[in-house]
Design a protein around this nucleic acid. Structure first.
Lengths: 242, 242
DNA sequence: AAAAGTGGACGTGTATGCAATTCTTGACTT
DNA sequence: AAGTCAAGAATTGCATACACGTCCACTTTT
């Protein structure tokens, strides 16, 4: 096996103008996740590959790969010689997802305490304070708030001292991003999040790992409550139960 | 989508005698994991699909699927249009794996406390006591010890009240099983594990969640120490570094 | 008539072929 | 001589083809 630096170029220069070959699988995963959380399939429903392939206009190959990825996430079951079976993706499962995230990320916060550059924490605190004072609610504000949110969680994951733990946290962040996309933008959750983020940053800057971990726990529980409330009250509407 | 009960028969009766079609992927995943932990590839090595396909005597399709599963585990990186790149799988990464397992399983133990049938705990305690008193070291003993080990961890996962958390724990158990297979049977670790298991069961039976969680932490740290010691001292021999 | 056996439709697992992209080696320009 | 560009080789992503397994309805047997 050659040990070369792979993928040195993000994208080759000469092919920039050409319409690059679309890589279907990532988008398939996203669309399948959205469909799952929208309640399109009940737990136990079979998901035949040909049906999904026709629906998304691709062949079975990328569908298979997408299904395997979703099975790795744990939202469908993949039985040998038998195909994919949907698992429940309701509020109970969302609660469980947030709980695991809480376990992972609170521990990461505890470990990251004292290992993040004070300058970065100060900059983040300033960002959150500014967002808090000028609490607008337009899309630009929302996007900026989300960026700061992501920055904090990424900072914690990166500094926790365990790259595998960081990877698991990023996996759950992606999953929760899909859930948020399913239930729509929750302004209230974002407003609440700013204060919770500030508490986390405050504890991190003070070098108090237990308080920081506890603040992260509260933050994730709050986010879970908002998401589940939105999911329960009228967001299973797209495929209502009879 | 039809909502039928799929795969009712574990295996159809009339095809029992027939040599069933081998499903290559699961075995491929196992062999690739063993190769990774054996240090066959350095971090950064590219793993071309055709090379692996020829080596294992299958086509690219099952190799691709196996690589995707390993990428989901996080032991290789899969860059779009660029293929698989090996990540480091040394003692540091094994340490990280055990740390995440510790985080997940100690929390699961805390939650499972008081939710496991006392009869099952009593039976497990009796098993461990018998194994401890008659500390033989043959293969049958080892296998029985491993069965009791697995039973305890499975009991905790099942009773923790969060099926997703249980799923993550099972994923890590499988991964660690591969690591154990790589470094060989560690008799000392198994002997030590019995006492640690007994402490866990004791705390669970006493209904003391914090003590149970702490006992699980100690147990997993001990297992990590044994595995890493074995990995460092002479188990990277199969592909020694120059 | 009930249980067991059988055939075919449906679906998955794998192999192979093709298009697009990336990597590499060589020639060319400054 | 060093850097730049380009063409060919190598490799990935997807589509298609085929073999096998599963499941259901029907036939056969007792």
């Amino acid at each position: 096996m050659q040990s070369l630096e792979p993928c040195v170029n993000p994208v080759s220069v000469k092919t920039l103008a050409v319409i690059s070959q679309p890589i279907y699988k990532p988008d398939l995963v996203r669309r399948l996740l959205l469909a799952l959380f929208s309640g399109e399939w009940q737990a136990g429903d079979r998901l035949p590959e040909v049906e999904l392939a026709e629906r998304f206009g691709v062949s079975r190959t990328p569908v298979r790969e997408a299904l395997q990825e979703i099975a790795a996430i744990g939202l469908i079951e993949l039985r040998p010689n038998c195909g994919a079976v949907a698992r429940a993706c309701g509020s109970e499962e969302v609660r469980e997802i947030y709980e695991v995230r809480e376990i992972l990320e609170s521990e990461a916060t505890r470990r990251a305490c004292g290992r993040i550059a004070p300058r970065k924490l100060a900059a983040l605190a300033a960002d959150f304070l500014e967002l808090q004072s000028a609490h607008r609610r337009d899309a630009a504000w929302s996007q900026r708030e989300w960026a700061a949110d992501h920055q904090l969680h990424e900072l914690v994951a990166h500094a926790c001292g365990n790259q595998r733990l960081a990877g698991e946290i990023r996996r759950y962040d992606q999953l929760i991003q899909v859930i948020r996309e399913t239930v729509g933008n929750l302004r209230e959750a974002q407003v609440a999040a700013i204060g919770e983020h500030l508490e986390i940053v405050k504890a991190l800057r003070a070098g108090k790992p237990e308080q920081a971990a506890e603040a992260m726990r509260r933050h994730i529980r709050s986010a879970a409550d908002h998401a589940i409330a939105a999911l329960d009250s009228g967001h299973a509407r797209t495929h209502a139960p009879a």
